[in-house]
Amino acid sequence: MTTPSAGLIDVHHHAIPPVYRAALGDSVAIPGVDYPTWTPQASLEVMDRHGIAASVLSVTAPGVGFLEGDERIRLARAVNEFYAGLIAEHPSRFGAFAILPLPDVAAAKDELGYAIDELGLDGVGMLTSYGNRYLGDPEFEPLLAEIAERGLPLHVHPAAPPAKDLATFDLPPSLYDFTFETTRTVVSLLFNGVLERLPHLKLIVSHAGGTLPFLAKRLTYGPTIGKYLTERAPADVIASLRGLYYDIAMSANEYALPALTRLADPEKILFGSDFPFMPAEHTTETVAGFNAYPGWNDEQRTAIGWANSLKLFPRFASAGHSAT
């Protein structure tokens, strides 16, 4: 199979390793969501059909959080080793975000070292919350600090809201609540000062940032609404939000992209498909929306399609992917 010398890089592309599917068993992965089948070949076929040169794989919700203790640690290790084997077979086509056995931060730091230093994975994947804690919780900051110090991309994917008594109207959380979960975790990082303390954290948020583009200005009103937030509010909320990376999975349309483009520098926007949880037909729709959006010029479209990702994932450049 040949690799395109230039093509899209998909940073929001899910894998379902056999060991993960077996461990999940009959558990409900995401309430109300039809769980897809997946094989590496299915990904490659969709990628080839849509001009996607490379994809960075990740496991979506619930991560490994449905297990406890050593079982959680073992499954994270098995998934990361599966990724490494797949990358060895297809080094120019696949990368992977390491999965960590959170909320155990000590075990997560151990697995981070193994996944990056021994397996050579490309970054880290985390969920928006673990237990009842979002990523701005002080417990997670040492782990985030190590990820930032290592210069690793961190892809954050939403999970079902941790509040079990939350009314969902019998609708799957991924239909609309995932966008709010992304917003909640970023707001927790903002108002707990994490983003200011870790300015070099390469944080990628899913689905065009959830509702962040729409709420960006509103989030600057914290001290106006409650004076007690004066000390907690970031010095410049908009600048902090503009420092994040945003993938366009499920968002390459005329409603989401104008708001995202107004908030985010094109150098911070990345292509994403959400395959296979969104089927191949949706990848077709996403690629069409990416190509048709009139708010980007050709240089910006090149940056968003792959050049920005090459800076985050230089292995693809060394594997022959060109930004021109």
Rank of each mutant, 00 (worst) to 15 (best):
T2C: 05
T2K: 10
G7N: 04
I9T: 00
I9E: 01
D10G: 04
D10S: 09
D10Q: 09
H12P: 02
H13D: 01
P17H: 10
P17G: 07
V19L: 11
R21F: 03
A22W: 00
I30H: 05
G32Y: 04
V33D: 02
D34Q: 14
Y35P: 01
P40K: 15
S43Q: 09
D48H: 12
R49I: 00
G51R: 11
A53R: 14
S58A: 15
S58F: 04
L67W: 03
G69R: 15
R72M: 02
L75S: 00
A76Q: 04
A76G: 13
A78S: 14
L86Q: 09
I87E: 02
A88D: 07
E89C: 07
E89V: 02
H90M: 07
S92N: 10
S92E: 08
S92T: 08
R93W: 09
A96T: 01
L100A: 04
P103I: 04
P103K: 14
D104H: 10
D110M: 10
I116K: 07
L119W: 07
G120A: 12
G123L: 12
L127Q: 08
S129N: 14
Y130V: 01
G131A: 09
N132E: 13
N132F: 12
G136K: 08
P138N: 11
E139N: 09
E141C: 04
E146M: 07
E146K: 11
E146G: 04
A148S: 13
H155K: 14
H155M: 15
V156R: 08
V156H: 05
H157L: 04
A160I: 02
A163D: 10
P173I: 05
S174M: 15
F178H: 08
T182Y: 07
V187M: 13
V187D: 00
G193L: 06
G193K: 11
L195F: 08
E196G: 05
L198C: 01
P199V: 06
P199W: 11
H200N: 13
L203N: 06
V205K: 10
S206V: 02
S206E: 06
H207S: 03
G210L: 05
K217A: 12
T220A: 08
T220M: 07
T224I: 14
L229F: 14
R232D: 06
R232W: 07
P234W: 12
A239F: 06
A239Q: 09
L241G: 03
Y246I: 02
I248Q: 03
A249P: 01
A252F: 01
A252E: 02
E254S: 13
Y255W: 15
L257E: 00
P258G: 10
A259L: 13
L263F: 05
L270N: 06
F271H: 05
G272H: 06
P276H: 09
F277W: 15
M278G: 05
M278C: 08
P279I: 08
E281A: 12
E285H: 13
P294R: 15
P294I: 13
N297C: 08
N297L: 07
D298R: 13
E299I: 11
R301D: 02
R315K: 11
A319S: 11
G320N: 08
G320I: 05
H321N: 10
A323L: 15
A323M: 13
T324R: 09
